[in-house]
Write a protein that binds this DNA or RNA. Structure first.
Lengths: 242, 242
DNA sequence: GCAAAAGTGTTCTTGGTACACCCATGG
DNA sequence: CCATGGGTGTACCAAGAACACTTTTGC
């Protein structure tokens, strides 16, 4: 080690793993088993180890909490949190990741957690440990913006889905309603967003819908914009980075 | 310190300070005074100190290199670089910042640098130390995207500027040509982008142009899109974070 | 007058919104 | 038959692209 001791610090990755369950946006939270904030909910996360990149650390943590991984899943940095007092124990800088998953089976608890569960975002928002409420809010806002410019909405869906399922993702994540007819046309006219599987699926009542898989496209050009949100914490842009 | 020693690491902030000089996009580089990469060009940067946030560290470094600061200047995270071997001396995770400045007087050298200077982005790109070429490329791409969705173009201009100056920023940063007539209309019709100062400025030859100051708006709605770049490293989005 | 840059007006086209309407199924 | 969700066609409108044309200066 060639640098000064007093400049050393810890880094963690924290994960905001989002999914749509029962028409609500849910996030995976763990119940903390240790002080501080013992017994309170928190986002899953852990220390970055010396030989791994942040992305690797995030994927490792994700694998510990859920059973998915690899191409199934969308994973990207959503923010960096560096307030010196954000962890009462010592200096910890956290890199937050947004993960988007289809409606998964129940999660498994990690090492320093009592239990893991899905919780509606609105319900847990107020009760999270550390600065995780802010991390979650930023991650959700990022997810909303990504729906506008990329094809990630499909990452919320299982491998086969209908246009109605996809529209439901937009409605739940944005918290708005989307015109079904214009939405269907928009998706169909965006090359590579979805590809038909040939199958159909009948709803409880009504005409069966064609089934689709994710297509190769990653960006939406032109984008699928929601109503202009009032100029608040302006959604900003960054290349994928690490 | 309550956490394990072997998980400690160093963090730095690196700055990609961009400006437009002589119709080219320039970046501030320093000449390294120490090994490794002694004598080679690098982006300015330094260690994050125990009591400061990343933003504070970035502003401190910026003040050491240039004379500007505060509201004059646009400063935002552009990426995180965490490859374990990116610094041969020890584990260093770097948070990169994009800074946008008007054409400034000559920069001053920092502590561990021999000299600081402006260099055209294309010229230095290939010769930078560490992974700074990648950091610079990502920062430039972010700047290009920000021009589309925000009013930062004005941060490249001095306090008073013409529509032509502003258009020149777009042309230089994007590397394309922009229709002067449509551009002028677009800027004029975007509330709060620019406000006229009342003054005029005569070019070498031609009709004098009205002078403007930056307006209060930060986002461009609707955006000012360049030709759709081929779906490569898709420009992605994130909230400002820390 | 001429060159050059500023600025206006107009046409064409693209793509979004709103909505009327038809389709296919279960009950 | 009706209710319900899937899917098509079309009229309208906002905004970008292209470009003819006018304005205002220096030479």
């Amino acid at each position: 080690m060639t640098f000064r001791q007093e400049l050393l610090l810890h880094m963690t990755v924290d994960l905001a793993i989002l999914t749509v369950r029962e028409n609500r946006l849910n996030v995976l939270v763990i119940e903390r088993g240790n002080e501080p904030y013992r017994g309170q909910d928190a986002l899953p996360g852990g220390f970055v180890r010396p030989w791994e990149t942040l992305d690797e650390a995030a994927r490792r943590e994700l694998a510990e909490e859920t059973s998915v991984g690899g191409d199934e899943l969308y994973l990207t940095v959503s923010g960096i949190y560096s307030a010196p007092d954000r962890d009462p124990r010592s200096r910890v800088v956290s890199v937050a990741y947004l993960a988007i998953a289809p409606d998964l089976p129940m999660p498994t608890a990690g090492s320093d957690a009592i239990g893991a569960r899905w919780a509606p975002v609105d319900a847990v928002r107020a009760t999270l440990a550390f600065d995780h409420a802010a991390i979650l809010a930023d991650a959700v806002e990022l997810a909303r913006t990504r729906l506008e410019f990329t094809t990630v909405a499909a990452a919320f869906c299982p491998s086969e889905f209908t246009i109605g399922d996809l529209r439901n993702v937009y409605e739940v994540v944005w918290g708005t309603s989307v015109d079904p007819r214009n939405f269907a046309r928009k998706v169909a006219h965006t090359d590579g967003f979805v590809v038909p599987t040939g199958g159909k699926r009948a709803p409880e009542t009504g005409r069966p819908a064609t089934l689709y898989r994710r297509g190769p496209a990653t960006t939406l050009n032109p984008p699928l914009l929601r109503e202009a949100t009032v100029d608040q914490a302006s959604p900003e842009l960054e290349p994928a980075g690490c």
